[in-house]
Each structure stands twice: as C-alpha cells, then as structure tokens.
Amino acid sequence: MKKIINKRAQEEMVGFALIIIIVAVILLVFLAVSLNKSKEEVLGTNEVSSFVQSILSYTTSCAEYQDNYYSIQKLIIECNNYESDCLDGRKTCDVLNSTLKGIVDESWPVGENTPIIGYEFFITVNDEVLIFFEEGNKTLNSKGSPQPFPHSIDIYFTAYY
C-alpha cells in the first residue's frame, strides 16, 4: 500500500516537472522570437535610403560642357559607358570615386569619437562592380540595404555601429 502511494507521488512529481520543462521551453522560444523581432526593428534604413537618394543629385566638379556639370547619377552612367572624359580632361570614374569617397567620409565619419565603426559602399551596374570602397571594421550591428535605380544601377551602402 505504502509503495503504491509512493509511486503515485513520484508520478505526480514527474508530471509537475514536465509542466515546468514545457513552460520553460515555451518561454525560451517566446524570448528568442521577441529578441529577434526587436533587432529587426532597430535596423531602420530610412536614413541610409535618404542619404543614397541625396547623393545621386549631387553636382560634381566634372563638366559635360561649359556650364553643365554632371550629377553623381549621370556620372555613374558616364563612368560605366566610358564615352567621354570631363571637360578639364579628368577621367569620369576618377572624379566619381573621389567625390563619393569625400561625401561618405564627411557624412559617416568613422573613428573613436563617433558611433560608426565602419562602412561599406559599392555600386554595381548590370551586376558588375563599378565602384567599391570601405572603411573601418564590420560588426553585426548595421544599417543599410541595397537600392535599385534605373539603368540597372544598384547602390549598396552599409554603416556598421
């Protein structure tokens, strides 16, 4: 009789332990899902997309003719087509590269006194890399996404925090 009571008590203990384990597993799953969700929300790309949109309109120092200067968007196309140089003889790709580097360095300064640890910038035309430069280190916490534009141009900018 005593043995049967002991066995029943043991069974109940096992049942209780099972409930605790199941609830703990459910909680862990819930925790993991919630943490992943909040991480995705932090990765806002509004600032980066505005940055990319804005640099495309930037007027470069490369003149097409006397009072008409190329914008970054037009310079990307010119650089890709190798049709002509700037009016002052500079190569369109050189001007594009130096202008973009200057803009990104000034807008997303990498250093100890800034929250930005590094960045990566590249432009592809028809899936071929036209311009590529990077600075600093890459981390898991980043901001940015690829942005497609007409003429099969894709601009990728990622800032690492």
């Binding site: 804005s54 640099i55 309109s57 930037y58 007027t59 006397q66 009072d67 200067y69 803009i103 807008s107």
Partner: peptide, 13 residues
C-alpha cells in the same frame, strides 16, 4: 550662374 547663364548646383545637407 556661369558667365551669365544659369546652371543647377546640388550639394549634400
């Protein structure tokens, strides 16, 4: 304007 003729200039801000 350049020698009297206007052109567009866009900067980053």
């Amino acid at each position: 304007s350049f020698e009297g003729s206007p052109y567009n200039k866009c900067e980053l801000a």
